[in-house]
């Protein structure tokens, strides 16, 4: 039997490069957050560009991506997000890569994902998907608990990345995406919104918050003028969801992101709306953001519009093929 007909070798792992999909659900009562990709839109487009089903695992990287050599076989890849990358072909020809389109790779070719541009996360997908083990119907990686493919670890130098054999479709595709460069993040009032003084509530919605370096897949710490809690700086621990904006005793908000702890004991002043989540997680440390309060109906409407927009982009991919 011939094994591993198609695989990459990792020449450089990049930063926090892990397999992710849409997440692992139904296990929060055991302490597992849904996890999965940080930027859902970029993830979905990465899979669509190489003709994959929407929940195939892709490689997610932060700031710096991996450099991979296709040691054996051939495949089609796509890189999404706002990412600077190049392809070094086996004859040493080098081309600058374009995000949001697919490329064919042959044996010996190298994909070098150099860096994300003014954004945090990018995705690398391959046609047919990566050959990885799922755990509870998901291939997302939760490094903190060593759960998911690659024994729950980030990929590292010299790793072998095995890919499934794809069909021989040589056509390449591109996605037309408009950039979203807004620093206002919309929120709903959180369950403990009234734990904060009137002045602090106003401050929360008017001041600039700087995203600090203490930001990862688990959470994003912000810095602004401290908020004053007038009731209690702790609550009885309760379940939490991604996008919750917690304010501990120091008055500085922490936004819980995709790999959040499942239970938390700090008051939540607000919750990021689902429609703005991808936009938020792509913001890099140093960026100033502001929060705008909206209502539940509007949040639901905005999500529905966003989802329809993503579906339209994906539908159009097949109509914009070239080569």
């Amino acid at each position: 039997m011939i094994m591993d007909n198609n695989f990459f070798k990792v020449l450089r792992p990049g930063i926090n490069t892990t397999y992710q999909d849409e997440g692992r659900f139904g296990l929060q009562h055991f302490g597992l957050p849904p996890g999965g990709c940080m930027d859902h839109k970029s993830f979905l487009i990465a899979n669509a560009l190489v003709g994959n089903k929407k929940n195939y695992g892709a490689l997610e990287f932060a700031y710096q991506g991996p450099m991979l050599k296709l040691t054996k076989g051939k495949t089609k890849i796509a890189v999404t997000g706002n990412t600077h990358f190049q392809i070094v072909y086996s004859n040493n020809d080098t081309i600058k890569g374009q995000c949001n389109r697919s490329y064919n790779l042959n044996e010996g070719d190298v994909i070098d994902v150099i860096a994300t541009k003014k954004s945090a996360y990018g995705y690398l997908s391959v046609a047919g998907g990566f050959k990885i083990q799922s755990f509870f119907s998901s291939v997302s990686t939760l490094v903190r608990a060593r759960i998911g493919p690659n024994n729950g670890n980030k990929i590292k130098e010299e790793d072998k990345i095995v890919i499934n054999k794809a069909n021989d479709n040589k056509e390449n595709f591109k996605a037309i995406i408009s950039t979203e460069d807004v620093n206002t993040i919309r929120v709903l009032k959180g369950p403990q919104h009234d734990y904060f003084s009137e002045e602090s509530k106003k401050k929360f919605f008017s001041q600039n918050y700087k995203i600090t370096n203490l930001t990862d897949r688990m959470g994003m710490r912000l810095k602004g003028k401290a908020l004053e809690n007038i009731i209690n700086t702790n609550i009885r621990s309760e379940g939490i969801t991604k996008g919750s904006v917690q304010v501990p005793a120091d008055g500085q908000p922490i936004i819980l992101l995709t790999d959040h702890p499942t239970i938390g004991g700090y008051p939540k002043i607000a919750n990021i709306i689902s429609a703005d989540y991808d936009l938020l997680v792509q913001k890099i440390p140093g960026t100033n953001i502001t929060f705008k309060c909206i209502g539940l109906k509007e949040a639901e409407q905005l999500y529905s519009e966003r989802y329809n927009n993503i579906s339209k982009i994906i539908k159009n991919i097949n109509e914009n093929n070239f080569i």
Binding site: F25, G26, L27, Q28, H29, P34, R236, S237, E238, G239, I240, T241, T262, I263, S274, E300, Y303, S304, Y307
Partner: peptide
């Protein structure tokens, strides 16, 4: 998508594409 019980609360998360 998820049900997360705690001491005195239950949080139920859902897919906004399918329900609300």
């Amino acid at each position: 998508l998820n049900c997360a019980p705690s001491y005195n609360k239950l949080i139920i998360s859902f897919d906004l594409k399918k329900t609300n």
